[in-house]
Amino acid sequence: MITDWIWGLLGGLMIGAAGAVYLLGNGRIMGASGIIGRIVDAKGSQALEAAAFVAAMIAAPAVIALVWLPGTETHLTSDWLVIAVAGLLVGLGTRIANGCTSGHGVCGMSRLSPRGIVATLVFMASGIATVAIFRHVLEII
């Protein structure tokens, strides 16, 4: 359990370092939903930069999982309806709100952005309520 927290902290530091590199290097906020959104919109040089980011973001954990942590899995539900609905809501919600856990959460909160703090509190509260209802009341997830 305690090792989980230490890995959490270490991985978190790496995520923060990633955000720091993107900010100080390219002058951009490292938000996963925003970066993926720029590929979806396919706007020239911005899409190229975003595609490079996403390619590295897939490749680095792929190599670690292959070489160092075989058997890594996500424990995602096998219920395809839940997956499809959840994916749709995550895509829709993060782009309507203009940010997700990385953009509003990590980057926004660390500069004490009121919008980032409010968005993070709202999606956390929404996520907590969702798990409470769907796990403990409806017992679907």
Partner: peptide, 22 residues
């Protein structure tokens, strides 16, 4: 946008346990 979007995102995040980065 900020509030409605975040509510919808939290709903999907809670259901599957995945956000865009992961």
């Amino acid at each position: 946008r900020l509030i409605t979007g975040s509510v919808l995102f939290g709903l999907g995040w809670g259901l599957a346990g995945l956000c865009p980065g992961p």
